[in-house]
Design a protein around this nucleic acid. Structure first.
Lengths: 250, 250
DNA sequence: TAAGTTGTTCTCAGGTTGAGTTGTTCTCAG
DNA sequence: CTGAGAACAACTCAACCTGAGAACAACTTA
């Protein structure tokens, strides 16, 4: 049997039915707090529970494209602003019983977005909101989405260490203080302003100066800050390491 | 419609057919060189080409379990030795045209194994071999497996920096020099022996002393080396960073 | 104008790194 | 049995990086 005959005789229905979905852990920073995009499910299973935006991948659509489409549908975003959102694959979740309907394998993605407008509920959802991650524990989550969110948050924290992706939470031009605020909210603890400043400027191609400064000083005083934009580094060398967690005392 | 009615009325065949496979980038070190497990495909598509071990995920099997099963089938391994192999999810590949038969989404995994016996070809394969990664360029690879292998090698290199997984390429007891040889072969360049020694012993819980030493000195002389086993650290703090690649000169 | 805040630059002590050296223990060849 | 060479393990030292704090000028609001 040659390759062409083989393909002609091939019947996809011979294989077990598995559905493939994409889900998105979309993060943004609003009012100094890390927020996550969640929808409330309108239809069973898990009707009324909160879930990640996502859905079945379409027959001719790449996985990343599917994730971006789902994100666009939930945020009502398009064009340039959607293109500025960082999107990467997170991990794939495929426990046999994770969806009561059938075998569903979900390819989860992680998105970093600058402050975006309030989301719009579409057909699958009662409601869509940006929820502060600190408020997550009070919500009932569908499927294994709690686990996916935990993995996404840990990935986000670690990505800030060795990539310049913190800039993706900000407008194209930003100050070093705004960049530090991103690190502080994602990592959840304060950083030394002077050392952070020195470090960011010493990492090659992390940020580049625009030459301009802010129009005004800070809300409560202080000089105007210099403006920077993201440099062309894709990896930070050397990395900005998180302060080590305390050793477990024995 | 309540949730039970919904599930009763649900027909999986309403959804587009997608097949889910698991593939494994299995790495080991033989004779001082990094080797990769490859099989030669017996059946179309890509008959005669080299491919990663893998196959369709079974209806009631978790993704990681499927990857471990495929690895066991190709290596003929079982029991304790199979359990010692480190296996983690790498990434998922789902471009619509990556398989000519139908839409196939492949969840790739990465495995680190101590030196294993020669693989045994099973039904899907003419032949199975451990191939030095330096010889990869001379082989015709099926599907997008070249890309998956590149991603797996890069992931392996980076995992050695911040996890103690280098020990998974070795027997349960090893010397610091053997551990250094793992880093040197995976990273592809020599390391300073004295500094490596100091660093490994200074990272908390990376390795712990067994108290014993090797029976004999090195093949070409030298004292007996102290033996260590893996400690209980899951992450290295601080990490063992690769020397920075040279800056791209402009 | 005074008081307070903030962006930015310094200083300095302590730690870590890269590179080389030393001393000792071993294997192998003759 | 001995000498040459190899390798493990420990040390030294200069260069660099980091964390913590201080200094100071440029802003804000009251």
């Amino acid at each position: 049997m040659n390759e062409q005959d083989f393909l002609a005789a091939y019947d996809p229905r011979d294989y077990p039915a598995v559905a493939v979905t994409v889900d998105v852990v979309a993060l943004t920073i609003r009012e100094g707090a890390l927020h996550l995009l969640l929808i409330r499910r309108a239809a069973p299973p898990y009707a009324g529970h909160w879930a990640l935006p996502g859905g079945f991948v379409r027959p001719d659509e790449d996985l990343g494209a599917g994730a971006r489409r789902e994100l666009a549908e939930e945020t009502g975003l398009g064009g340039e602003r959607l293109r500025r959102v960082h999107l990467e694959q997170l991990a794939t979740y495929g426990a046999p019983d994770r969806d009561p309907r059938m075998r569903v394998v979900s390819v989860a993605h992680l998105a970093f977005a600058p402050d975006l407008p309030d989301p719009v509920a579409d057909t699958d959802a009662d409601e869509a909101v940006w929820l502060p991650v600190t408020a997550l524990s009070s919500r009932q989550l569908a499927f294994d989405h709690g686990r996916i969110i935990d993995d996404g948050l840990e990935r986000a924290r670690s990505k800030l260490e060795y990539t310049p992706l913190a800039t993706r939470f900000l407008a194209p031009e930003f100050t070093i203080t705004e960049l530090r605020a991103v690190y502080e909210t994602v990592w959840g603890h304060p950083l030394h302003a002077g050392n952070f400043h020195r470090k960011v400027l010493s990492v090659p191609s992390f940020v580049e100066s625009t030459g301009a400064s802010t129009e005004r000083g800070g809300a409560r005083g202080g000089p105007r800050a210099k403006l920077y934009r993201a440099g062309d580094a894709r990896l930070l060398h050397p990395a900005l390491l998180r302060p080590a967690r305390e050793e477990t005392v024995r």
